[in-house]
Design a protein around this nucleic acid. Structure first.
Lengths: 188, 188
DNA sequence: GTCTATAAGGCGATAGAC
DNA sequence: GTCTATCGCCTTATAGAC
Protein backbone atom coordinates (compact mmCIF):
# COMPACT_ATOMS: atom_id res chain seq x y z
CA UNK A 1 0.00 0.00 0.00
CA UNK A 2 1.77 3.10 -1.25
CA UNK A 3 1.60 6.34 0.72
CA UNK A 4 -0.79 8.77 -0.90
CA UNK A 5 -0.90 12.54 -0.81
CA UNK A 6 -3.99 14.14 0.69
CA UNK A 7 -5.18 15.02 -2.78
CA UNK A 8 -4.82 11.41 -3.90
CA UNK A 9 -6.67 10.16 -0.82
CA UNK A 10 -9.49 12.62 -1.43
CA UNK A 11 -9.84 11.48 -5.03
CA UNK A 12 -9.65 7.82 -4.04
CA UNK A 13 -12.40 8.10 -1.45
CA UNK A 14 -14.48 10.24 -3.79
CA UNK A 15 -14.44 7.42 -6.35
CA UNK A 16 -15.79 5.03 -3.74
CA UNK A 17 -18.41 7.46 -2.40
CA UNK A 18 -19.77 8.21 -5.87
CA UNK A 19 -19.83 4.56 -6.90
CA UNK A 20 -21.72 3.69 -3.74
CA UNK A 21 -24.11 6.60 -3.24
CA UNK A 22 -23.81 8.96 -6.22
CA UNK A 23 -22.96 12.64 -6.56
CA UNK A 24 -26.02 13.73 -4.59
CA UNK A 25 -25.53 11.00 -2.02
CA UNK A 26 -22.37 12.12 -0.26
CA UNK A 27 -21.16 15.34 1.35
CA UNK A 28 -17.88 17.11 1.93
CA UNK A 29 -18.22 16.06 5.55
CA UNK A 30 -18.43 12.36 4.59
CA UNK A 31 -15.30 12.73 2.49
CA UNK A 32 -13.40 14.79 5.07
CA UNK A 33 -14.12 12.25 7.81
CA UNK A 34 -12.88 9.37 5.65
CA UNK A 35 -9.58 11.11 4.89
CA UNK A 36 -9.18 12.63 8.34
CA UNK A 37 -9.11 16.30 7.37
CA UNK A 38 -11.54 19.21 7.72
CA UNK A 39 -13.97 20.09 4.96
CA UNK A 40 -12.17 23.37 4.31
CA UNK A 41 -9.09 21.40 3.25
CA UNK A 42 -11.09 19.76 0.47
CA UNK A 43 -11.87 23.19 -0.94
CA UNK A 44 -8.13 23.88 -1.11
CA UNK A 45 -7.71 21.06 -3.66
CA UNK A 46 -11.17 21.17 -5.23
CA UNK A 47 -12.78 24.62 -4.95
CA UNK A 48 -16.29 23.37 -5.71
CA UNK A 49 -18.00 19.99 -5.68
CA UNK A 50 -18.30 20.19 -9.46
CA UNK A 51 -14.50 20.36 -9.67
CA UNK A 52 -14.20 17.30 -7.45
CA UNK A 53 -16.58 15.19 -9.51
CA UNK A 54 -14.91 16.26 -12.76
CA UNK A 55 -11.49 15.20 -11.52
CA UNK A 56 -13.00 11.95 -10.21
CA UNK A 57 -14.50 11.00 -13.55
CA UNK A 58 -11.28 11.90 -15.37
CA UNK A 59 -9.26 9.73 -13.00
CA UNK A 60 -11.70 6.83 -13.27
CA UNK A 61 -11.77 7.08 -17.05
CA UNK A 62 -7.97 7.14 -17.22
CA UNK A 63 -7.77 3.96 -15.15
CA UNK A 64 -10.23 2.05 -17.31
CA UNK A 65 -8.54 3.39 -20.45
CA UNK A 66 -5.18 2.09 -19.20
CA UNK A 67 -6.75 -1.25 -18.38
CA UNK A 68 -8.19 -1.61 -21.90
CA UNK A 69 -4.95 -0.43 -23.47
CA UNK A 70 -2.95 -3.01 -21.52
CA UNK A 71 -4.99 -5.95 -22.77
CA UNK A 72 -2.84 -8.27 -24.87
CA UNK A 73 -4.38 -7.93 -28.32
CA UNK A 74 -2.63 -11.09 -29.49
CA UNK A 75 -5.09 -13.02 -27.33
CA UNK A 76 -8.22 -14.35 -28.96
CA UNK A 77 -11.39 -12.21 -28.74
CA UNK A 78 -12.74 -14.84 -26.37
CA UNK A 79 -9.78 -14.56 -24.02
CA UNK A 80 -9.86 -10.78 -24.11
CA UNK A 81 -13.57 -10.77 -23.30
CA UNK A 82 -13.02 -13.19 -20.44
CA UNK A 83 -10.49 -10.83 -18.86
CA UNK A 84 -12.83 -7.87 -19.28
CA UNK A 85 -15.67 -9.79 -17.66
CA UNK A 86 -13.58 -11.00 -14.74
CA UNK A 87 -12.82 -7.39 -13.92
CA UNK A 88 -16.55 -6.58 -13.92
CA UNK A 89 -17.35 -9.70 -11.91
CA UNK A 90 -15.09 -8.46 -9.14
CA UNK A 91 -17.07 -5.22 -9.02
CA UNK A 92 -20.37 -7.12 -9.05
CA UNK A 93 -19.32 -8.89 -5.85
CA UNK A 94 -18.89 -5.60 -3.97
CA UNK A 95 -21.23 -2.68 -3.38
CA UNK A 96 -19.77 -0.32 -5.96
CA UNK A 97 -21.20 0.07 -9.46
CA UNK A 98 -19.45 1.77 -12.37
CA UNK A 99 -18.78 5.45 -11.68
CA UNK A 100 -20.00 6.41 -15.13
CA UNK A 101 -23.12 4.30 -14.76
CA UNK A 102 -23.91 6.08 -11.53
CA UNK A 103 -23.20 9.62 -12.71
CA UNK A 104 -25.02 9.19 -16.02
CA UNK A 105 -28.30 8.80 -14.12
CA UNK A 106 -27.52 12.13 -12.42
CA UNK A 107 -26.96 13.91 -15.73
CA UNK A 108 -29.42 16.71 -15.00
CA UNK A 109 -27.52 17.64 -11.81
CA UNK A 110 -24.07 17.73 -13.41
CA UNK A 111 -22.17 20.33 -15.47
CA UNK A 112 -21.49 20.03 -19.18
CA UNK A 113 -17.81 19.28 -18.54
CA UNK A 114 -18.79 16.08 -16.75
CA UNK A 115 -21.21 15.12 -19.53
CA UNK A 116 -18.36 15.34 -22.01
CA UNK A 117 -16.18 12.98 -19.96
CA UNK A 118 -19.03 10.51 -19.44
CA UNK A 119 -19.84 10.40 -23.16
CA UNK A 120 -16.20 9.77 -23.96
CA UNK A 121 -16.13 6.97 -21.40
CA UNK A 122 -19.14 5.24 -22.94
CA UNK A 123 -17.68 5.56 -26.44
CA UNK A 124 -14.35 4.15 -25.31
CA UNK A 125 -15.90 1.01 -23.84
CA UNK A 126 -18.36 0.50 -26.68
CA UNK A 127 -15.61 0.88 -29.26
CA UNK A 128 -13.40 -1.60 -27.46
CA UNK A 129 -16.19 -4.19 -27.36
CA UNK A 130 -17.06 -3.45 -30.99
CA UNK A 131 -13.46 -4.19 -31.94
CA UNK A 132 -13.70 -7.62 -30.35
CA UNK A 133 -16.97 -8.34 -32.10
CA UNK A 134 -15.71 -7.20 -35.48
CA UNK A 135 -12.65 -9.37 -35.13
CA UNK A 136 -14.77 -12.39 -34.27
CA UNK A 137 -16.94 -11.53 -37.26
CA UNK A 138 -14.07 -11.39 -39.73
CA UNK A 139 -11.99 -14.25 -38.32
CA UNK A 140 -14.74 -16.71 -37.53
CA UNK A 141 -17.24 -15.54 -40.14
CA UNK A 142 -19.86 -15.02 -37.45
CA UNK A 143 -23.16 -13.39 -38.37
CA UNK A 144 -25.15 -11.19 -36.00
CA UNK A 145 -28.81 -10.16 -36.03
CA UNK A 146 -27.66 -6.53 -35.58
CA UNK A 147 -24.55 -4.53 -36.49
CA UNK A 148 -21.36 -4.95 -34.42
CA UNK A 149 -21.81 -1.36 -33.22
CA UNK A 150 -25.37 -1.97 -32.05
CA UNK A 151 -24.39 -5.27 -30.45
CA UNK A 152 -21.52 -3.61 -28.59
CA UNK A 153 -23.85 -0.89 -27.30
CA UNK A 154 -26.42 -3.46 -26.18
CA UNK A 155 -23.86 -5.62 -24.41
CA UNK A 156 -22.18 -2.67 -22.72
CA UNK A 157 -25.52 -1.25 -21.59
CA UNK A 158 -26.56 -4.65 -20.28
CA UNK A 159 -23.29 -4.97 -18.36
CA UNK A 160 -23.79 -1.52 -16.81
CA UNK A 161 -27.31 -2.43 -15.81
CA UNK A 162 -26.04 -5.83 -14.69
CA UNK A 163 -23.80 -4.22 -12.07
CA UNK A 164 -26.69 -2.11 -10.81
CA UNK A 165 -29.11 -5.02 -10.65
CA UNK A 166 -26.52 -7.37 -9.13
CA UNK A 167 -26.22 -4.97 -6.22
CA UNK A 168 -29.98 -4.45 -5.93
CA UNK A 169 -30.66 -8.20 -5.85
CA UNK A 170 -27.55 -8.99 -3.82
CA UNK A 171 -26.78 -11.47 -6.62
CA UNK A 172 -23.50 -11.14 -8.54
CA UNK A 173 -24.71 -13.82 -10.96
CA UNK A 174 -27.12 -11.22 -12.31
CA UNK A 175 -24.19 -10.03 -14.43
CA UNK A 176 -23.95 -13.37 -16.20
CA UNK A 177 -26.77 -12.93 -18.70
CA UNK A 178 -24.88 -10.07 -20.32
CA UNK A 179 -21.61 -11.92 -19.87
CA UNK A 180 -23.09 -14.95 -21.65
CA UNK A 181 -24.16 -12.86 -24.62
CA UNK A 182 -20.75 -11.27 -24.90
CA UNK A 183 -19.00 -14.63 -24.79
CA UNK A 184 -21.42 -16.04 -27.35
CA UNK A 185 -20.71 -13.04 -29.57
CA UNK A 186 -16.93 -13.41 -29.60
CA UNK A 187 -16.53 -17.19 -29.49
CA UNK A 188 -15.60 -19.28 -32.50
CA UNK B 1 -57.10 17.07 -17.65
CA UNK B 2 -58.88 15.59 -14.67
CA UNK B 3 -58.87 17.38 -11.33
CA UNK B 4 -56.49 15.69 -8.91
CA UNK B 5 -56.47 15.60 -5.15
CA UNK B 6 -53.45 17.10 -3.41
CA UNK B 7 -52.20 13.63 -2.64
CA UNK B 8 -52.44 12.66 -6.29
CA UNK B 9 -50.64 15.82 -7.37
CA UNK B 10 -47.86 15.18 -4.85
CA UNK B 11 -47.38 11.64 -6.12
CA UNK B 12 -47.51 12.78 -9.75
CA UNK B 13 -44.83 15.43 -9.30
CA UNK B 14 -42.75 13.04 -7.20
CA UNK B 15 -42.66 10.62 -10.12
CA UNK B 16 -41.31 13.36 -12.37
CA UNK B 17 -38.79 14.65 -9.82
CA UNK B 18 -37.35 11.19 -9.16
CA UNK B 19 -37.18 10.32 -12.86
CA UNK B 20 -35.35 13.57 -13.56
CA UNK B 21 -33.04 13.99 -10.56
CA UNK B 22 -33.32 10.93 -8.35
CA UNK B 23 -34.25 10.39 -4.71
CA UNK B 24 -31.28 12.40 -3.44
CA UNK B 25 -31.77 15.08 -6.08
CA UNK B 26 -35.00 16.70 -4.97
CA UNK B 27 -36.34 18.12 -1.70
CA UNK B 28 -39.70 18.53 0.00
CA UNK B 29 -39.42 22.21 -0.90
CA UNK B 30 -39.07 21.43 -4.61
CA UNK B 31 -42.15 19.24 -4.42
CA UNK B 32 -44.18 21.67 -2.33
CA UNK B 33 -43.46 24.54 -4.73
CA UNK B 34 -44.57 22.47 -7.73
CA UNK B 35 -47.90 21.55 -6.11
CA UNK B 36 -48.42 24.92 -4.46
CA UNK B 37 -48.56 23.81 -0.83
CA UNK B 38 -46.23 24.08 2.14
CA UNK B 39 -43.75 21.35 2.98
CA UNK B 40 -45.61 20.52 6.19
CA UNK B 41 -48.61 19.48 4.08
CA UNK B 42 -46.50 16.82 2.37
CA UNK B 43 -45.79 15.28 5.78
CA UNK B 44 -49.54 14.99 6.36
CA UNK B 45 -49.80 12.55 3.42
CA UNK B 46 -46.30 11.06 3.55
CA UNK B 47 -44.78 11.25 7.05
CA UNK B 48 -41.22 10.65 5.87
CA UNK B 49 -39.43 10.85 2.54
CA UNK B 50 -39.03 7.06 2.60
CA UNK B 51 -42.82 6.75 2.66
CA UNK B 52 -43.10 9.09 -0.30
CA UNK B 53 -40.62 7.17 -2.43
CA UNK B 54 -42.23 3.85 -1.53
CA UNK B 55 -45.65 5.06 -2.64
CA UNK B 56 -44.09 6.53 -5.79
CA UNK B 57 -42.48 3.27 -6.84
CA UNK B 58 -45.69 1.35 -6.08
CA UNK B 59 -47.71 3.76 -8.21
CA UNK B 60 -45.19 3.66 -11.06
CA UNK B 61 -45.03 -0.13 -10.97
CA UNK B 62 -48.82 -0.39 -11.00
CA UNK B 63 -48.98 1.80 -14.10
CA UNK B 64 -46.43 -0.23 -16.04
CA UNK B 65 -48.08 -3.44 -14.86
CA UNK B 66 -51.42 -2.22 -16.18
CA UNK B 67 -49.80 -1.24 -19.46
CA UNK B 68 -48.26 -4.69 -19.92
CA UNK B 69 -51.50 -6.39 -18.88
CA UNK B 70 -53.48 -4.38 -21.43
CA UNK B 71 -51.34 -5.46 -24.37
CA UNK B 72 -53.38 -7.52 -26.81
CA UNK B 73 -51.76 -10.93 -26.59
CA UNK B 74 -53.40 -12.01 -29.83
CA UNK B 75 -50.96 -9.72 -31.62
CA UNK B 76 -47.75 -11.23 -32.93
CA UNK B 77 -44.66 -11.00 -30.70
CA UNK B 78 -43.30 -8.52 -33.20
CA UNK B 79 -46.32 -6.23 -32.90
CA UNK B 80 -46.34 -6.47 -29.12
CA UNK B 81 -42.65 -5.58 -28.99
CA UNK B 82 -43.21 -2.64 -31.30
CA UNK B 83 -45.84 -1.22 -28.96
CA UNK B 84 -43.56 -1.70 -25.95
CA UNK B 85 -40.71 0.06 -27.73
CA UNK B 86 -42.84 2.97 -28.87
CA UNK B 87 -43.72 3.64 -25.26
CA UNK B 88 -40.02 3.70 -24.35
CA UNK B 89 -39.19 5.85 -27.37
CA UNK B 90 -41.54 8.52 -26.08
CA UNK B 91 -39.65 8.55 -22.79
CA UNK B 92 -36.31 8.68 -24.60
CA UNK B 93 -37.39 11.93 -26.27
CA UNK B 94 -37.94 13.67 -22.92
CA UNK B 95 -35.70 14.19 -19.89
CA UNK B 96 -37.14 11.45 -17.71
CA UNK B 97 -35.64 7.99 -17.42
CA UNK B 98 -37.36 4.96 -15.87
CA UNK B 99 -38.12 5.48 -12.19
CA UNK B 100 -36.85 2.01 -11.34
CA UNK B 101 -33.69 2.56 -13.38
CA UNK B 102 -33.03 5.73 -11.43
CA UNK B 103 -33.79 4.38 -7.94
CA UNK B 104 -31.87 1.15 -8.49
CA UNK B 105 -28.64 3.14 -8.70
CA UNK B 106 -29.55 4.69 -5.33
CA UNK B 107 -30.06 1.28 -3.70
CA UNK B 108 -27.69 1.96 -0.80
CA UNK B 109 -29.69 5.07 0.20
CA UNK B 110 -33.11 3.39 0.13
CA UNK B 111 -35.01 1.16 2.58
CA UNK B 112 -35.58 -2.54 2.14
CA UNK B 113 -39.25 -1.96 1.32
CA UNK B 114 -38.24 -0.02 -1.80
CA UNK B 115 -35.72 -2.70 -2.80
CA UNK B 116 -38.52 -5.25 -2.74
CA UNK B 117 -40.68 -3.17 -5.07
CA UNK B 118 -37.79 -2.49 -7.44
CA UNK B 119 -36.88 -6.15 -7.69
CA UNK B 120 -40.48 -7.04 -8.41
CA UNK B 121 -40.54 -4.35 -11.13
CA UNK B 122 -37.47 -5.76 -12.84
CA UNK B 123 -38.83 -9.30 -12.69
CA UNK B 124 -42.15 -8.18 -14.16
CA UNK B 125 -40.57 -6.55 -17.19
CA UNK B 126 -38.03 -9.31 -17.75
CA UNK B 127 -40.73 -11.97 -17.53
CA UNK B 128 -42.92 -10.13 -20.02
CA UNK B 129 -40.07 -9.86 -22.52
CA UNK B 130 -39.12 -13.48 -21.89
CA UNK B 131 -42.68 -14.49 -22.75
CA UNK B 132 -42.40 -12.75 -26.12
CA UNK B 133 -39.07 -14.38 -26.83
CA UNK B 134 -40.27 -17.85 -25.85
CA UNK B 135 -43.29 -17.49 -28.08
CA UNK B 136 -41.11 -16.46 -31.01
CA UNK B 137 -38.88 -19.42 -30.21
CA UNK B 138 -41.69 -21.97 -30.23
CA UNK B 139 -43.75 -20.49 -33.08
CA UNK B 140 -40.94 -19.53 -35.44
CA UNK B 141 -38.42 -22.12 -34.31
CA UNK B 142 -35.87 -19.41 -33.63
CA UNK B 143 -32.59 -20.32 -31.97
CA UNK B 144 -30.71 -17.99 -29.64
CA UNK B 145 -27.09 -17.96 -28.50
CA UNK B 146 -28.34 -17.66 -24.88
CA UNK B 147 -31.47 -18.75 -23.00
CA UNK B 148 -34.70 -16.75 -23.41
CA UNK B 149 -34.38 -15.66 -19.77
CA UNK B 150 -30.84 -14.38 -20.25
CA UNK B 151 -31.78 -12.69 -23.51
CA UNK B 152 -34.74 -10.96 -21.85
CA UNK B 153 -32.50 -9.73 -19.02
CA UNK B 154 -29.91 -8.46 -21.47
CA UNK B 155 -32.46 -6.66 -23.61
CA UNK B 156 -34.26 -5.13 -20.66
CA UNK B 157 -30.98 -3.97 -19.11
CA UNK B 158 -29.89 -2.51 -22.44
CA UNK B 159 -33.21 -0.65 -22.75
CA UNK B 160 -32.83 0.77 -19.24
CA UNK B 161 -29.30 1.90 -20.01
CA UNK B 162 -30.52 3.13 -23.39
CA UNK B 163 -32.87 5.62 -21.72
CA UNK B 164 -30.05 6.87 -19.49
CA UNK B 165 -27.58 7.21 -22.33
CA UNK B 166 -30.14 8.75 -24.69
CA UNK B 167 -30.57 11.56 -22.18
CA UNK B 168 -26.83 11.91 -21.55
CA UNK B 169 -26.07 12.16 -25.28
CA UNK B 170 -29.22 14.14 -26.07
CA UNK B 171 -29.85 11.44 -28.68
CA UNK B 172 -33.08 9.42 -28.51
CA UNK B 173 -31.74 7.14 -31.27
CA UNK B 174 -29.37 5.75 -28.65
CA UNK B 175 -32.27 3.51 -27.63
CA UNK B 176 -32.37 1.87 -31.04
CA UNK B 177 -29.51 -0.57 -30.64
CA UNK B 178 -31.42 -2.36 -27.89
CA UNK B 179 -34.67 -1.92 -29.81
CA UNK B 180 -33.07 -3.54 -32.87
CA UNK B 181 -31.97 -6.56 -30.88
CA UNK B 182 -35.41 -6.98 -29.38
CA UNK B 183 -37.09 -6.78 -32.77
CA UNK B 184 -34.56 -9.22 -34.23
CA UNK B 185 -35.29 -11.58 -31.33
CA UNK B 186 -39.07 -11.70 -31.79
CA UNK B 187 -39.38 -11.43 -35.59
CA UNK B 188 -40.17 -14.39 -37.80
C1' DG C 1 -56.25 19.54 5.75
C1' DT C 2 -53.45 23.38 5.58
C1' DC C 3 -51.12 26.67 7.63
C1' DT C 4 -47.19 29.33 10.57
C1' DA C 5 -43.42 28.76 13.18
C1' DT C 6 -39.61 26.46 14.55
C1' DA C 7 -36.51 22.85 15.77
C1' DA C 8 -32.09 20.65 15.05
C1' DG C 9 -28.91 19.75 12.09
C1' DG C 10 -26.61 19.40 7.33
C1' DC C 11 -25.02 21.70 3.14
C1' DG C 12 -21.29 23.94 0.17
C1' DA C 13 -18.35 27.55 0.54
C1' DT C 14 -15.22 31.44 2.38
C1' DA C 15 -12.08 34.38 5.45
C1' DG C 16 -8.27 34.58 7.81
C1' DA C 17 -4.96 32.74 11.54
C1' DC C 18 -1.09 29.80 11.83
C1' DG D 1 -1.62 23.28 3.57
C1' DT D 2 -4.46 22.86 7.31
C1' DC D 3 -6.89 24.71 10.66
C1' DT D 4 -10.98 27.39 13.35
C1' DA D 5 -14.81 29.94 12.81
C1' DT D 6 -18.55 31.33 10.48
C1' DC D 7 -21.83 32.56 6.79
C1' DG D 8 -26.20 31.91 4.57
C1' DC D 9 -29.01 28.73 3.12
C1' DC D 10 -31.28 24.24 2.79
C1' DT D 11 -32.84 19.87 4.80
C1' DT D 12 -36.35 16.70 6.95
C1' DA D 13 -39.47 16.79 10.40
C1' DT D 14 -42.72 18.31 14.26
C1' DA D 15 -45.99 21.21 17.24
C1' DG D 16 -49.87 23.49 17.39
C1' DA D 17 -53.23 27.26 15.64
C1' DC D 18 -57.05 27.63 12.55
Amino acid sequence: MKTQSVREQLLEHTLVLIRRRGFNGFSYRDLADLVGVKTSSIHYYFPAKDDLVLEAVKEYSARISERLRSVDSSLSPREQAEGYLNFLRTAACGDQICLAGMLSTETLCLPESVHTELKQFYRMNENWLMGLIERAQSEYGKVYPVTPRALAQVIYGALQNGLIVARLFGAPERLESAADLLMASVSE
